[in-house]
Design a protein around this nucleic acid. Structure first.
Lengths: 202, 202
DNA sequence: ATAGTTTGATTGATCGTTCAATCAGGGTTG
DNA sequence: CAACCCTGATTGAACGATCAATCAAACTAT
């Protein structure tokens, strides 16, 4: 047992226990004691690795954020730069990656969204995510649409993705991921093909 | 001070204080003591009118739900039955009514969404809202679209509304309500006018 | 006087944090 | 190789703070 790998292993183990606890009990009732019990360790160990509970929550959200970023990046790597629609689809599909669309992850996201309204550290992470999604979409749309339409398209598709996610978190029996993907892709396709939802007319 | 009018007045007063407390501190830190202090009354009074804290939260969410329903219903009352697009627009505009789009209300909604994942009473209220929005939209779309397209349209517009709402709650400086309304209306218009985001092609 | 309302101190429970103690392993020294 | 120390990991009990709920007493209006 080396010190460093052990440490990062414990961290990951505690983060996963945190996700499980949030899924089972909700963030409000995801107590240190419960998280530690789920991980099979003592409660004191958490402050040793994360400082305090807020540190653990921030690390957990950062973990989700990183997974989401990788899911998108990996899909885009396979798309040639000139294939605009391909990149847009990759962004959409990445956001509905299986790592993000299981019930535990979606519920955790919703809890973090709510918590970010009153915790600066979480808010910063959430803004990174929001801006990244918007910027990625906007950059693609801008290559085939005028700037104002590109902004509208990005706003629209980003909000649609978030809305579908939200409904996924709130639906106990889970949602049809394939249907979500299709709705988002078709919406993006409509923008790309020009017969967008009515050109801006102030 | 009459007994019955007094009672309902106190209830409303405490519900508004709850909304303020949720806005200022977040649901997790919206304690009984704080809510009572915001309302200028003693802490014990809450259990007298709402039983316990959960009862107060449920009443608060029900209050928001009712306001939203009225905002939509009132706008639809002015639209003739045959004006499909008018009804759809009324539903959208009602969901972006000023009673719902101030920062306090939007944040409260997000908190309630998160809480509803683990509190059956709140979950029931949230489902009522979700189904009502979807059913209203679907009923309109069905009059000009085949059933499967109507379902897609309703899902899409409902998710878009929720997503725009979500972003409104998470954006500290607030959002451009008019822009949200426009995006949602244009999206609905596209579905209604048939050049929908690609007819289902399964 | 009686029923409804309001207070605010008290209670009991819960939670996050702290910390002294223990443990395991690796490096150092003689 | 053996005795030693050192570092980081881990435990679990103890502490202090906080909060929701309770309730007896005070207040108000009819």
């Amino acid at each position: 047992m080396q010190p460093s790998p052990m440490a990062s292993g414990r961290r990951r183990q505690l983060i996963k226990a945190t996700l499980t606890a949030i899924h089972q009990y909700g963030m409000a009732d995801a107590t240190i004691a419960r998280i530690a019990r789920l991980a099979g360790v003592s409660s004191g160990i958490i402050s040793h690795y994360f400082g305090d509970k807020a540190g653990l929550m921030e690390a957990t959200m950062r973990y989700l954020l990183q997974q989401l970023g990788e899911a998108v990046a990996e899909r885009r790597r396979r798309i040639p730069p000139e294939d605009i629609a391909g990149h847009v689809d990759a962004i959409i599909d990445g956001n509905f990656d299986s790592s993000q669309t299981n019930v535990a992850a979606m519920r955790a996201w919703l809890e973090f969204w709510a918590a970010s309204m009153h915790q600066p550290a979480l808010r910063r992470l959430q803004r990174v995510n929001e801006r990244r999604l918007y910027a990625n979409l906007c950059h693609q749309f801008r290559q085939v649409l005028p700037a104002d339409q590109a902004r509208d398209a990005a706003q629209s598709v980003a909000a649609l993705i978030d809305g579908l996610w939200l409904r996924g978190a709130l639906t106990p029996e889970g949602i049809d991921i394939e249907a979500c993907r299709r709705l988002a892709r078709d919406n993006a396709r409509a923008w790309l093909e020009g017969h967008a939802p009515r050109t801006t007319e102030t």
